[in-house]
Nucleic acid binder design. Structure first.
Length: 513
RNA sequence: GGUCCGUUCGUCUAACGGUUAGGACUCAAGAUUUUCAUUCUUGCAAUAGGGGUUCGAUUCCCCUACGGACUACCA
């Protein structure tokens, strides 16, 4: 029987989740759902220095807004801390699992795959600096480990004495020499690395009694029975180390599969998309607005007016494609269509224009009543009180023109309030000496019309134009000018029928003055 | 510097050795429209370079160039 698919998203709570992280979470989610498996959230907070308050809550809220909440790791909106049926591997926060890692690190020492090291960080820094000055690079590996301050160079007695007397020591992995490590990546295929090029990574720190990423990650993936690891490309260089760790623990045959996702790149210039790019280039890089403890605010897709479905759809297509021409997918359709085989190997430059286009597509799919409901808060803030039917009609006239609901007001203000000023360019182009008399006549005719619906108005005006031999362009544009104030908007008859006879006539008469 | 990954229109991408190299976004032009927008039609625009392998390479191999990631007691 095939093993259950269990994937995890394992962010570090060092700040808000950015859109690259959301994409990684999304691919994990889709992969798990497609295979009827579990999508797990684990918080990797083994760096006690970089913890940012609020980041964890932000991550949970962001995933929820996107509609890709994990089905394991969360209890009542918070990280699960106590094991139960839904969350059998709790706690899901690594700082609360600290007790379990030390014995794994020591197991590796016992088996000869790791060793204790006492070098101080200042001593290591100095060696790095010295090497740099001579144009070399200092690497803590097989070439130097025998000459540094660690358990490979001291006696057993001295070792236990020093272990007891201070906590300024770490456990390092003893990377083997000249071993060809053969790895498989689900997206990139076979990869080979010679172990001699790798260094002796720290696995566990006595100072804070915490593991580093590598140890915690491998141990927890094993303990939580993760079947597939889907993570960012920045982890590809440490894949050989992780392979060696699985081997050292004797877990090679139950090692998860790995897939490394290419990075999201800046729209302009070079390099990966970073937190700064958003506000520099005028688009959000975060799903939700983020208020840093320091007070700095970064914009979010939610607050900018994006629909979560549109955001997710856009993100899914950034580095993956279905192999068909289809571009619009809801979450279920994405789940159905997704496969790691169709994930693109190269990095994707993010394109804000296309993101807007996605939102426009989703906005168009929405029904009038929902859009009217979304528009209401904007109207209320302008002090406007209209019923749902009226707002829906207004929305029906302008929804094709907008990418966001927040654009509705500037697109439809004249449907709610009379113009305050008139565009002089339009006036210069169409306004003639005869215009006031003509508009007066139209206005008088409107007063005595039986029905004031769109068709009747259209008929009446074109009839007048025909009978009197007026110029259509001039008349219609001037009429529009008095109703709207400028050269924009839906058909003149549409506007008049919505705002009503009285308001239409009053705008024309007021404009004539 | 070293290790690893990558490279098709400006951008996102399709083409699992044989296509006039396709689609989408953007941009431009035209048509429709009383305006703006929508819509429709059309257009601009790409296989990084050089060697192989092959009857035939975007596709397979090698080199070069370029880009990226990593190179912490951070993740």
């Amino acid at each position: 029987m095939a093993k259950e698919t269990r994937v995890r998203f394992a962010p570090s709570p060092t700040g808000p989740l950015h859109m690259g992280g959301v994409r990684t979470a999304l691919y994990n989610y889709l992969y798990a759902k497609k295979r009827g498996g579990k999508f797990i959230l684990r918080i990797e907070d083994t760096d006690s220095q970089r913890f940012v308050p609020g980041a964890e809550e932000y991550i949970i809220e962001a995933l929820e807004w996107c509609g890709i909440s994990p089905n394991e790791g969360i209890k009542e909106g918070k990280i699960a801390e106590i094991a139960d049926k839904e969350n059998p591997y709790a706690p899901y926060r690594q700082s609360q699992r600290r007790g379990i890692y030390r014995k794994y690190a020591e197991e590796l020492v016992d088996k000869g795959f790791a060793y204790y090291a006492f070098d101080t960080s200042s001593a290591l820094d100095k060696m790095r600096k010295d090497a740099e000055e001579t144009g070399e690079t200092f690497t803590y590996n097989h070439s130097v480990r025998e000459s540094l301050d660690n358990s490979l160079t001291i006696s057993k007695e001295e070792l236990s004495r020093r272990l007891d007397e201070s906590d300024h020591w770490v456990i390092r992995f003893k990377m083997p020499i000249d071993k060809i490590i053969k790895m498989t990546d689900l997206i990139r295929g076979e990869i080979e690395v010679n172990s001699s090029t790798l260094d002796d990574k720290v696995l566990w720190k006595a100072a804070d009694e915490l593991p580093t990423y590598h140890l915690a990650n491998v141990v927890d993936d094993r303990l939580m029975e993760i079947s597939d690891v889907i993570r960012g490309e920045e982890w590809l260089p440490s894949l050989p180390l992780h392979y060696m760790l699985y081997e050292a623990f004797g877990w090679s045959d139950i090692r998860p599969s790995f897939a490394h996702l290419s990075l999201l790149l800046k729209p302009d210039g070079k390099g990966k998309l970073s937190k700064r790019d958003g506000d520099r280039l005028g688009f959000p890089v975060f799903p939700l607005e983020w208020r840093a403890p320091g007070g700095e605010i970064s914009s979010g897709y939610r607050e900018e007016g994006y629909y979560p479905d549109a955001f997710i759809n856009m993100l899914a297509l950034l580095g993956w494609n279905p192999g068909t021409q289809q571009e619009i997918f809801n979450l279920n359709e994405l789940t159905e269509a997704f496969s790691l085989e169709r994930v693109v190997k190269s990095g994707a430059k993010f394109n804000p224009e296309k993101a807007k286009w996605f939102n426009q597509e989703y906005l168009r799919q929405r029904d009038l009543l929902s859009l009217a409901e979304e528009f209401k808060p904007f109207l209320i803030s302008k002090g406007i009180d209209k019923n749902d039917e009226y707002i829906s009609s207004a929305v029906s006239m302008i929804k094709e023109r907008a990418s966001f609901v927040k654009e509705f007001w500037s697109l439809s203000d004249f449907l709610f309030t009379a113009p305050q000023s008139y565009d002089t360019a339009v006036k210069a182009k169409f306004w003639k000496e005869s215009t006031p008399a003509i508009l007066k006549e139209i206005s008088e005719s409107l007063k005595v019309m039986e029905n004031f619906d769109k068709e009747s108005i259209e008929q009446k005006i074109s009839q007048l134009i025909k009978e009197n031999g007026w110029q259509t362009g001039s008349v219609m544009n001037c009429l529009r000018l008095l109703l709207v104030g400028e050269s924009k908007g839906p058909g003149v008859a549409d506007i008049m029928s919505l705002i009503g006879r009285e308001e239409s006539i009053s705008r024309v008469e007021r404009g004539l003055e």
